[in-house]
Design a protein around this nucleic acid. Structure first.
Length: 588
RNA sequence: GGCGCCGUGGCCAAGUGGCUAAGGCAUCGGAUUGCAAAUCCGACAUCGGCGGUUCGAAUCCGCCCGGCGCCUCCA
């Protein structure tokens, strides 16, 4: 029997981090973060069983652990993060048979999909992707060792873990062997006890299999994680993560296998992320307000737990529609241990807040002439320390930075941290306003004096948001194509001319005419910018120009009406006046 | 039946013993703008209910009501 892990670690540990605390599922409380080895952190996150494409639920763990690694690295730890791929299992075999492919082919396909989705969400911190089929030697040796030590027994070509031999069995999920009423998932006749679980399964004819001391077979579900974690991170490592639904039986069994085999604690901190719940009408949950609205639409989509069996899917479509950063930002707004009600409208609402940051980045660019994304920022907590007593602005920034770090130190509270980021942007925006950073005609020298602290403040924003893995690169422009950009430039020029002559009726007509497309004009000191625009924008904008031209013609303002046609012509749009009205076409 | 989680303003969501209960969305005022947009300022909750512990509780304990998860594959 191994010694107790939770209360009496037998491994030497490094000094605890002075402020960082982390919640441990095993002890059910937050504790100061201390590593097995000084300055180093080993993280193992349970990845997917690749029998199908990933769904959004599979991204929660990777996103939060990506932040955890970034934050630990920022705190000067050297982090080694492993995400396993389980590529041998009943469902993979079944899927391969259905599709007339090999198990390996099915796995490859879904691994590619998984990695693509990770990349889209900005998850790029993973160091190792071990695959079960590549660790068969380690798996077999682990099973052998458990048999030799009497914790497991062979039975008709299978090998089972003898739960009765592990006095600590159930400590992670807080269960007792006696209390478990399940019938153990079949194969009862081969087991000593229904609670025993398979370490090794004998192969049926035509199944993929590996040679072993017990005959040809393949690993049971849990053993591969114990083996891969040991192989890459050692017998005791720092953080083991996964979805809350893996606590039992998967992690309970992992801990049993590893600790019985090694007679030492498997991990220091078990960190489980909350699960996503699907809800077609999120935002209305518990809402008494508009419950009665939209009557007649009695089709209630099923809400509830999201899983493959529940038909979750379409992650690729979701990412294409929303963009990776929106989804990441949405997930990070909530604490990782909470359940998140997931829906597209909810993402879209969060995305409105994201725009505040993007607008600020544009403002930064207007002020400094350089891109926020190119800005150098401190990469470590120590390096980002700010001088006390610096300029007024920087004192505020330092304060917010401190609050950000305090909440992140408290079990990686990304939701609280994002709140501080909003405050930081507000502070920086206010400084821009007050210091009139965008007003032209300022003395160059004087201006740079004011810009300097501003840039330092923006660096802090970059520094902190980098630990969350957001704002790393400019989001893909929605853009309505090149032509729309050219047409809009024309619109803006025409309107500017109208405004210059105080022809506000025309200027406003332009603004109003754009409204239906979602295009908004923003008049600034340096000129007019436009944002937005839906898929019909080009057509609507050109029709608006046609109307404008018609109005000018009726007013005998042929200079304007000709200008509209000539300039459109210049960018390749031809107008033809017909009896029924004017039509437009693009020159070939 | 066993184990566990959650219930904070119209919505989302931090906070889990002590300054005026973060922040986002929405809404309403104001500054700014030719009008807008953006930005800034301000307004907007006593924390599901009841009882208890405490000098002091959203935060601890008990009961109740209402959601949900795991105990079978699942991130």
């Amino acid at each position: 029997m191994p010694t107790s892990t939770a209360t009496n670690p037998t491994t030497a540990t490094a000094a605890a981090h002075p402020t960082l605390r982390i919640y441990n599922t095993l002890t059910k409380k937050k504790s100061p973060f201390e590593t097995v080895l000084p300055g180093k952190v080993g993280i193992y996150l349970c990845g997917p069983t690749v029998y199908a494409e990933a769904h959004i639920g599979h991204m929660v763990g990777p996103v939060i652990f990506d932040c955890i690694k970034r934050y630990l690295t920022y705190n000067a730890y050297e982090v080694n993060w492993v995400v396993n791929i389980t590529d041998v299992d009943d469902k993979l075999i079944q899927k391969a048979n259905e599709r007339g492919m090999t198990m390996l082919e099915v796995a490859e396909e879904n691994i590619a999909d998984y990695k693509q989705n990770l990349a889209a969400l900005g998850v790029d911190q993973i160091d190792h992707f071990p695959r079960a089929t590549e660790c068969m030697g380690e798996i077999i040796r682990l099973v052998e060792s458990l048999v030799e030590q009497g914790f497991a027994y062979a039975s008709e070509g299978d090998v089972y873990f003898d739960v009765g031999k592990d006095r600590e069995y159930g400590k992670l999920s807080n269960r007792t062997v006696e209390a478990m009423q399940g019938e153990g998932g079949g194969m009862v006749e081969r087991k000593k006890s229904a609670a025993d679980f398979a370490l090794w399964k004998s192969a049926k004819p035509d199944e993929p299999s590996w040679e072993s001391p017990w005959g040809n077979g393949r690993p049971g579900w849990h053993i591969e994680c114990s083996a891969m974690a040991k192989k890459i991170l050692g017998e005791t490592f720092d953080i083991h993560g996964g979805g809350l639904d893996l606590v039992f039986p998967h992690h309970e069994n992992e801990i049993a296998q590893s600790e019985c085999c090694h007679a030492k604690p498997m991990v220091k901190y078990w960190a489980h992320n909350g699960l996503l719940r699907k809800d077609a009408a999120a935002g209305k949950i518990g809402g008494r307000g508009d419950a009665a609205s939209a009557a007649g639409d009695s089709v209630t989509e099923d809400s509830g737990k999201m899983s493959r069996s529940a038909g979750a899917g379409g992650l690729g479509d979701l990412i294409a529609a929303q963009g990776g950063e929106r989804i990441r930002f949405f997930l990070l707004r909530t604490h990782y241990r909470s359940t998140v009600l997931f829906s597209e409208p909810a993402i879209e609402e969060a995305a409105i807040g994201l725009e505040t940051f993007y607008r600020f980045f544009k403002r930064y660019e207007r002020v400094t002439g350089s891109s926020f994304y190119e800005l150098d920022a401190p990469a470590t907590r120590e390096g980002g320390e700010m001088e006390p007593g610096a300029a007024d602005l920087l004192a505020q920034v330092a304060q917010l930075r401190k609050k950000f770090l305090t909440v992140m130190d408290d079990d990686f509270n990304t939701g609280g941290a994002i709140g501080e980021l909003f405050e930081l942007v507000r502070t920086l925006n206010k400084y821009c306003d007050d210091a009139q950073l965008e007003v032209t005609g300022e003395m160059p020298g004087q201006l740079s004096e004011k810009v300097e602290p501003f840039v330092r403040g923006v660096q802090a924003l970059k520094e902190l948001s980098s630990t969350l893995g957001i704002f790393q690169q400019a989001p893909a422009e929605a853009g309505g194509g090149e032509l729309l950009g050219q047409v809009m430039q024309l619109v803006i020029d025409l309107r500017a001319e109208a405004r210059a002559t105080k022809n506000f009726a025309t200027a406003d007509a332009v603004r109003d005419g754009l409204a239906p497309t979602g295009i908004v004009l923003e008049d600034r000191a340096g000129g007019t910018e436009w944002t937005g625009g839906d898929e019909n924008a080009l057509d609507v904008v050109i029709k608006m120009l046609i109307d404008l031209r018609q109005t000018a013609r009726e007013g005998k303002d042929f200079a304007t009406s000709d200008a509209v046609r000539d300039r459109l012509q210049a960018i390749g749009v031809t107008l033809e006046d017909r009896a029924g009205g004017t039509e437009w076409s693009i020159m070939g």
